[in-house]
Computed example of a mutant assay.
Amino acid sequence: MPSFVLLVRARGDADPAMRIGITVSKKVGNAVVRNRMKRRFRALVREVLPEAGIPGADHVLIGRNGGIERPFDDLKAELAKALVKVKR
């Protein structure tokens, strides 16, 4: 089961900046768990998005159960794979 859902939408303006949104539902855990997951997602985005992101698009990561236990390298590979699928 994936640790997150990735939504990407092109804005359609001339701005090539990539924007990011991160959300984790209360179903995932308490505030400590949700905030830890958001910190991990922010670190993940800083590493992967500059090379693999889509310019001029909004990227939204929605955290899912089990994402907090996943190794960071697995999350990184998952995000890179999702971005490749979106680019097609």
Rank of each mutant, 00 (worst) to 15 (best):
P2L: 15
P2I: 11
P2H: 12
S3T: 14
S3F: 15
S3N: 13
F4M: 12
V5K: 06
L7C: 13
L7P: 02
V8F: 08
V8P: 08
A10S: 06
A10I: 04
D13R: 10
M18D: 01
M18A: 02
M18F: 09
I20M: 15
G21D: 01
G21A: 07
T23C: 06
T23Q: 09
S25E: 05
S25T: 12
K26Q: 06
G29D: 04
N30Q: 09
A31I: 10
A31L: 07
A31H: 02
V32M: 03
V33D: 00
R34Y: 14
R36K: 13
R36Q: 04
K38E: 03
F41K: 01
A43D: 04
V48G: 13
L49W: 00
G56V: 12
G56I: 13
A57Q: 01
A57D: 05
A57E: 09
D58P: 08
D58V: 00
D58S: 09
H59W: 12
H59I: 12
I62T: 05
G63D: 06
G63T: 07
G63K: 13
N65R: 15
G67L: 08
R70M: 11
R70W: 01
P71E: 11
F72P: 07
D73Y: 10
L75P: 06
L75Y: 06
A77H: 14
E78K: 11
L79M: 14
A82R: 05
A82N: 07
V86F: 01
K87H: 05
R88M: 08
